[in-house]
Amino acid sequence: MSKVNIILVCSAGMSTSLLVTKMQKAAEARGLDAHIEAIASSVAVDTLKDTPADVLLLGPQVRFLEADYKKRFNEIEVAMISPQDYGMMNGEKVLDQALSLIG
């Protein structure tokens, strides 16, 4: 698999930074070339115009954006992060979710 680009969207971009770190560690442990980034929902639309993404994962606090993002970014896989995995900051499971969406 070539490099994967995973974007996580949350309300401020801060709460997901720990999850991103855990996902990066999980990716490194698997020898996976991954760029994983957290961005705030307030800048997501502008950021995604210029940033290639294979998958867009939404934090539970921005679940209301899911339908809009699926329409707006129809060339990118868009999904919700499970509230349990988000709450536990389970980087392994969220990485698995992202990779399963990419195929």
Rank of each mutant, 00 (worst) to 15 (best):
M1R: 13
K3S: 10
V4A: 00
N5R: 11
I6V: 14
G13Y: 08
M14F: 13
M14D: 02
S15K: 09
S15M: 11
T16D: 08
T16N: 12
S17G: 11
S17E: 11
L18K: 14
L18P: 09
V20E: 05
T21E: 12
T21V: 03
K22C: 10
A26I: 08
E28M: 09
A29C: 04
E37F: 06
A38P: 08
I39E: 10
A40H: 02
V43H: 01
V45K: 15
L48F: 08
D50I: 15
L57P: 01
G59A: 15
P60M: 00
P60D: 00
Q61P: 12
Q61A: 08
Q61M: 12
V62G: 12
F64A: 07
L65T: 00
L65G: 02
D68V: 07
D68E: 15
D68P: 02
Y69G: 02
K70I: 09
R72S: 05
N74K: 04
E75S: 13
E75L: 06
E77Q: 12
S82Y: 13
P83R: 01
Q84K: 03
D85M: 09
D85N: 13
Y86F: 15
Y86R: 05
Y86W: 15
G87F: 05
E92M: 14
Q97G: 05
G103F: 05
G103S: 15
